[in-house]
Simulated scan of single mutants.
Amino acid sequence: MDFFDTYSLKARLFPAILTVAPVVILCLLCASWVDPGLPEAVGAVAVMVLFFAAANLARRFGRAKEREIFSDTDGRPRNPELTHADSTFPASQKGRYRDYLAAQLGLPAPTAHDEQERPRDAQAFYDQAYVWLRENTRDTEAFKLLFNENISYGYYRNLLGLKPIGILLNLLSLGVAAAIVHYQPAFASLSNGKLVALGGLAAIHFGYFVLGVTRKAMLDASAIYARQLVLSTEALMKRT
C-alpha cells in the first residue's frame, strides 16, 4: 500500500502521469467508448500498468538526476543555511540552532574560523546536523509544512529525471496519431479534428516540460525545503 501514500502519489505518480499523458490522451481519442470492446479493455489495463511502471521509474530516474546534479557533493544537496557565511538567517538565530544541534550530536559547533581553516571538519558537522534534522522531523503531522516542501522537491526532481521520456512520448504520440489518420487501421480511428486537439494538448505538454521542468526549478525546491528543515529546529527546541 506504500504506492498510495501521500508522498508516492504526489512526488512519484503525478510526475509519471504527466510524463505518459500524451500516450494516455492518444489512447482515449482512438478508442470507441460508445461501444467499447476488447481493444478498449486492453488499452485501459495497459494505461494502468503504464502508470505503475512510470511511477517506479520516476523515483529511479529522479535519484539518478539528483546524483548527476549534485555529483560534487556525493549525490546529495549540500545546504549552507547554518554556516556563518550564509545570510539566509540572522547570525543570532543560526547561533541558537548550531548550539542546539551541537548538543544533540555531542560535537562542538564550528566557528567562523573553523569554517575557514578546517572546512572539511566544519562540513562534516553540518552534514550530520542535516541528517539528524531529517531523522527527527519524520512526523508528517507535526512537520506538515516541511513534508509538503519535501513532496515539492521530490516532484520536481522526479519530473526532471523523466523529462527526456516525456518529450519523447510527446513526439511519438503525435507521429502515431498522424499515421492512424493517414492509414486508418482497423484497430483504431482518429479524425482530423481529434488530431488537431491532440496537437494542441501536445504543444502545451511540450512547453511545460521544456520551460517548467528545469534544473533551476529543482534547485529552488531544494533550497526551500532546506530552509524549512532548518526552521524546524525551532519546534524541536521547544520540545526539549
Rank of each mutant, 00 (worst) to 15 (best):
R134P: 11
G95K: 15
R138M: 04
N136A: 06
F125T: 01
D121F: 01
A103V: 13
W132P: 09
R76V: 15
L107K: 03
L107D: 11
N79I: 13
Q128R: 11
Y130G: 13
S92H: 12
T88F: 10
K94Q: 08
V131D: 15
A124N: 14
P90G: 00
S71C: 00
D86F: 04
A129Y: 03
Y130F: 15
A129H: 07
H84K: 05
E117K: 01
H84Q: 05
L107G: 09
P110R: 00
E115W: 06
A91F: 12
P110E: 05
T137I: 03
Q128F: 04
T137L: 04
S87N: 14
E115I: 05
Y130D: 10
Q128M: 09
D99P: 03
F70Y: 14
G106A: 07
D99C: 12
L107W: 06
T88V: 11
P80L: 06
V131E: 12
G95V: 11
A122C: 05
F70M: 07
W132F: 15
F125D: 03
R134C: 11
R138E: 00
Y126S: 01
Q104N: 08
L82C: 10
L82E: 09
R98G: 00
L107H: 07
R78Q: 08
Y100M: 08
S87V: 11
Q116C: 11
D99S: 15
R76P: 10
G75D: 10
S87H: 10
Y130I: 12
G106W: 03
Q123S: 14
Y126N: 02
E81H: 15
F125Y: 01
E115H: 06
A124G: 14
D99I: 14
L101S: 02
L82F: 15
L133E: 01
F125I: 05
P90Y: 15
F70I: 08
V131N: 11
L133T: 06
A91H: 13
F125M: 00
A102D: 11
K94L: 09
R120W: 11
Q128L: 08
P77M: 00
Q93R: 15
N79D: 07
L133W: 02
T73P: 14
P108R: 00
S92G: 00
E81C: 12
P119Y: 10
D121H: 01
E117Y: 08
